[in-house]
Design a protein around this nucleic acid. Structure first.
Lengths: 171, 171
DNA sequence: TATTGTTATACTCTATAACTATA
DNA sequence: TATAGTTATAGAGTATAACAATA
């Protein structure tokens, strides 16, 4: 009765040599990767969402907070405190928009650009550590497989789905 | 600093034709997988940690809460409420330990076994949905690559890092 | 005195919604 | 009236530490 059943977590399954099912491995390794990256960022006193904002602004300077919130899929009220953090550290600035004085055009400071650069360096180091078990060809394979899944699942490149809390079944 | 829902993301990287780095893809797809699995569990009124406990008890009935907490890497006080949930639903029971009356031997009820079976069925469906973009050979490849990483990174098979709070840098 | 399980408290994070200032 | 941003409040979730029972 259990012989065909998959598993959440480790399971003794005879048809497959694998100890854990792929979906669990993805979630497990993914959570591990997120955790390790967050740890790597601690010297910069930044959390991963901060880096996402810095990166978004480096690609599209002058966005409003609404635009940014929509792009990154988080609530405007949450973005406020994240931008507050970055502004408090001197990494980003709310500048006045000439046409609509309700909105703030968000831009990186020079310090913000340098910090983003450093964060991306840490991200590269993070990836090297994470993939230490794989050679170049295997990394390429893994990347292609993950991209196939991401695309088929409708994930937006560069946008982390972790913003929607897992208990949010709506939307 | 405590935020583990990373938001770094896509990066223009010239050495790679890939739009996102592998580490980000892992975290992104992994979070997506976790979220979808949690959604799939809602008909059972269970969260992923509940399923982890059910599975652990199905493999090792009679564990104490301390043993279970150690195995799953979560705090005993947190385990209490999870076990409360399961006991409240009639899926698990705290039975008396003959030798040490401080401890409770945790066991699954028949209903718990059936519910675990159903959860594993949902997990299989989840995996099929998640890997819809991959053929059998690609899934096998992906599983092997993820297992290599998991092993090299010191991850315990069947133990999800998200069970423990991810902001624990200590310990 | 140490350990198991529990409870109580405090803290963190986030969503909701109220509020302001512009439009 | 609607929208951008902000602030205030409340709720969920969890860690910390105190506690009672037992060893």
């Amino acid at each position: 009765m259990n012989d065909l059943l998959p598993l959440y977590g480790r399971v003794k399954q005879r048809q497959s040599p694998r100890s854990s099912p792929i979906a669990f491995l993805l979630s497990q390794v993914g959570a591990h990767a997120a955790m390790r990256f967050a740890q790597k960022l601690t010297p910069l006193n930044l959390a991963p969402p901060h880096v996402g904002i810095l990166r978004a602004l480096s690609e599209s300077a002058g966005m409003s907070q609404q635009q940014l919130a929509t792009l990154l899929g988080l609530h405007p009220s949450r973005l406020v405190s994240l931008v507050d953090d970055l502004e408090g550290k001197g990494l980003a600035e709310r500048t006045e928009s000439p046409d609509d004085r309700r909105t703030h055009a968000l831009v990186l400071t020079e310090e913000g650009k340098k910090t983003l650069h450093e964060a991306l360096r840490l991200a590269q180091k993070h990836q090297d550590d994470l993939c230490a078990a794989l050679d170049a060809q295997e990394r390429e394979q893994l990347g292609q497989l993950l991209e196939k899944i991401a695309q088929q699942q409708g994930l937006t490149p560069g946008v982390h789905p972790g913003f929607a809390r897992m208990r949010d079944n709506k939307r």
